[in-house]
Nucleic acid binder design. Structure first.
Length: 652
DNA sequence: CGGATCACCCGTC
DNA sequence: GGGAGGACGGGTGATCCG
């Protein structure tokens, strides 16, 4: 073994190579950690990738040093002040606690691998991974015993487990099984949130009441149901909010469940012993920062060091951490959110060949344009992403007046951006379009758009008087994505949507909830406990600035920006969201048509989710039908022109 | 000074 | 034998501009 690189430990250098692959994860019990770490280290060291990891690591260490220095400079008076701030926030957050809901988080066990085993039973019992030499998506439990894990490059996995069988990914198959599971979820919560193909959150409060049963029983029943229709096992967590449910589903994995009762003592006991890393939204870096800058490893320590949290982090970040410490997470059914960007990127073996690079760029531009047109979107901002041969990532962006979506326009801007970076040796090129027209276009109450929206919504998708999403799709961060419709259309029935922080990630849901719920009436909880009003916030800013002025100008600036930003955002979003609703992309509404993600709500035809293009066509058909009836209205052209797709009458 | 934009970072599956 | 993904959203600090 070589031990040149790291200075920390001369005998066992790999011990200081912090890889994510040795984290505690389901199925990792009994893994020879040291062996895994050593092999990963030896396969990695000296590579460009490894060097880049070291560079990043050094950067984080520096950041941590800065934070420690800032901590050290805090005087007792400052600490007092921040303790006061923290205590106040904790009280406010505590007031938002809602223990009345029962949430279930369902997580399929080694989903892709399990599906592959289902279609090829000979794989059963053998170590297997879905993915290729460059990257593994999922490994089955047999493979995990060797330390093989998701997100690990295949060639390292093979070294860890020479008999490992590789199976290429097949998303159509996973989609199919995913939709089968969702039909089961639907029965327990028609508004369930799909977090990914293999994960979902269900609010089973109502169904528990109806059936006079417990969350535990429901979870058992639901898992049995999933097994029945798919032959696949899953695990579940039952808890009063999503943040906790997610943690709980991991506890008895695979094919198990864990129930956290709806009482404060149980919840607090549970959260206190939990390492922060278990919380969704706290990854490797944040864990590292909390640990080495603040000495925080468990959730309990977050509360113990709440003054430091408030002193060092922005308000939104501090709020997130504090609510984690309090085990407060999302209990509402969040509104659908519209897509904000769309992107496409590809890796290839590093090259400096300009002709090749330009060709790749053109390919990606084309794929991106296709995706945009599929969604009927155009955007003003184009971002070029490059990863150099040394794994350094750069982004370069332009924003133009015009909304673009054609391959030519994209390529034109992208080439310009790329040109400025040449000469360069690259291993990845990506393009992203954002700043969609939705955000600007459309009067708040354009009658035509309203009509169309109503039309789509009226497709019998609505169920209970609260929440009408046929099924919300959440993005990878646990945020909710389209599929459903917009909050302000059902404001009246949707009052539950303003608890503090969504458990699944740091902040924004919180902000958007404010705005979407729009703060007129019915603000019981927040009104009294939190500084919702712009005036209050501004006063806070003044105070903070004054105090902070003597401590850390940098921090003070950060704080004030934060406050003002969020205030403004709220104001902006109130208007924007109304506009969004009115002008929401037709295609983004498309899924409203598919009951149970399967059956057209208008004509009843059945079409699985994987028939993407067929569905689009089918939707266009209904759209055209509808538009023909209504076409007399001139306003509709405005909308059609932005929405692009193959509608009967694309004007300009 | 405030808003818009940019660049970069983090986290998730 | 070398080889470390793709897509998305959010946060934040810097900088430019009017």
């Amino acid at each position: 073994m070589a031990n040149s690189e790291t200075s920390a430990d001369t005998a066992r250098p790999w011990q200081s190579y912090n890889t994510v692959y040795t984290n505690a994860k389901a199925g990792m019990e009994g893994v020879d950690r040291e062996r895994v770490q050593r092999i990963v280290y030896e396969m990695s060291k000296g590579s460009q990738y490894f060097k880049n990891e070291e560079r990043k690591e050094a950067f984080i260490r520096e950041k941590i040093e800065n934070m420690r220095a800032r901590c050290a400079k805090l005087k007792p008076a400052d600490l007092d002040h921040f303790q006061t701030v923290a205590d106040k926030r904790i009280l406010e957050l505590e007031a938002t606690r809602d223990l009345s809901r029962i949430w279930v988080h369902v997580d399929m066990d080694a989903f892709y691998a399990a599906v592959e085993t289902l279609s090829d039973p000979s794989l059963k019992g053998k170590p297997m991974a879905v993915g290729g030499m460059s990257m593994i998506s999922t490994a089955n439990y047999e493979a995990r015993k060797f330390g093989v894990r998701a997100a690990m490059p295949g060639f390292i996995a093979r070294k860890l487990c020479p008999d490992l069988i590789f199976v290429p990914t097949d998303f159509e198959k996973y989609n199919h099984y995913s939709s089968l599971t969702r039909k089961v979820y639907q029965k327990y919560d028609p508004n369930f949130l799909a977090a990914s193909l293999d994960e979902a959150y269900l609010d089973v409060t109502e169904v528990c009441k109806e059936k006079g049963t417990t969350g535990e029983e429901i979870a058992k029943e639901l898992r049995a149901g999933v097994y029945e229709v798919t032959g696949l096992t899953c695990s579940a967590g039952v808890a009063p909010n999503r943040l906790l449910a997610k943690v709980c589903s991991d506890i008895n994995k695979p094919n198990g469940q864990f129930v956290l009762p709806n009482n404060r003592v149980a919840v607090m006991t549970f959260i206190f012993s939990l390492p922060v890393r278990k919380i969704g939204g706290i990854g490797k870096v944040t864990e590292h920062i909390l640990k080495d800058a603040l000495g925080i490893s468990t959730c309990e320590e977050i509360l113990q060091k709440s003054s430091l949290i408030c002193a060092l982090f922005s308000r939104s970040a501090a709020d997130f951490f504090l609510s984690v410490g309090l085990a407060i997470g999302g209990t509402d059914t969040p509104e659908a959110r519209l897509r904000k960007s769309i992107s496409n990127e590809r890796s290839f073996s590093a090259t400096g060949d300009e002709a090749y690079i330009y060709r790749k760029l053109a390919d990606i531009a084309e794929m991106l344009s296709t995706d945009l047109q599929k969604e009927g979107l155009c955007g003003r901002t184009l971002t070029l992403k490059l990863k150099t041969a040394s794994f350094e990532v750069r982004t370069r962006a332009v924003t133009s007046q015009k909304y673009i979506c054609s391959t030519e326009d994209i390529l034109k801007h992208a080439s310009k951006l790329l040109k400025a970076e040449l000469p360069i040796s690259l291993r990845l090129i990506g393009l992203r379009v954002s700043h969609f027209d939705e955000e600007k276009v459309g009067a708040p109450s354009d009658p035509t758009q309203r009509t169309l929206t109503d039309y789509i919504l009226s497709g019998n998708v609505l169920r209970k008087n609260v929440g009408n999403q046929s099924s919300l799709e959440m993005d990878t961060n646990g945020r909710c994505m389209m599929h459903g419709e917009e909050p302000c259309l059902f404001e009246d029935g949707h009052q539950t949507s303003r608890d503090s922080l969504d458990g699944n990630h740091v902040v924004n849901l919180d902000d958007s909830k404010f705005t979407l719920g729009n703060f007129d009436e019915k603000e019981e909880v927040y009104e009294s406990t939190s500084s919702v009003n712009a005036e209050t916030v501004c006063v806070d800013v003044q105070n903070e600035d004054n105090v902070l002025g003597g401590v850390s100008p940098l921090l003070a600036a950060g704080h004030s920006g934060q406050f003002e930003g969020s205030t403004l955002d709220r104001v902006n979003n109130v208007t924007n969201n109304h506009e969004d609703v009115a002008s929401c992309s037709v295609s983004q509404k498309e899924l409203l048509l598919w009951l149970n993600d399967y059956k057209c709500s208008i004509c009843g035809i059945e079409m699985p989710a994987s028939f993407v293009e067929e569905r689009q066509e089918h939707f266009d058909f209904h759209l055209a039908e509808k538009l023909q009836k209504e076409e007399s209205g001139a306003d509709s052209t405005c909308m059609l022109s932005q929405r692009k797709p193959q509608n009967p009458n694309p004007k300009n």
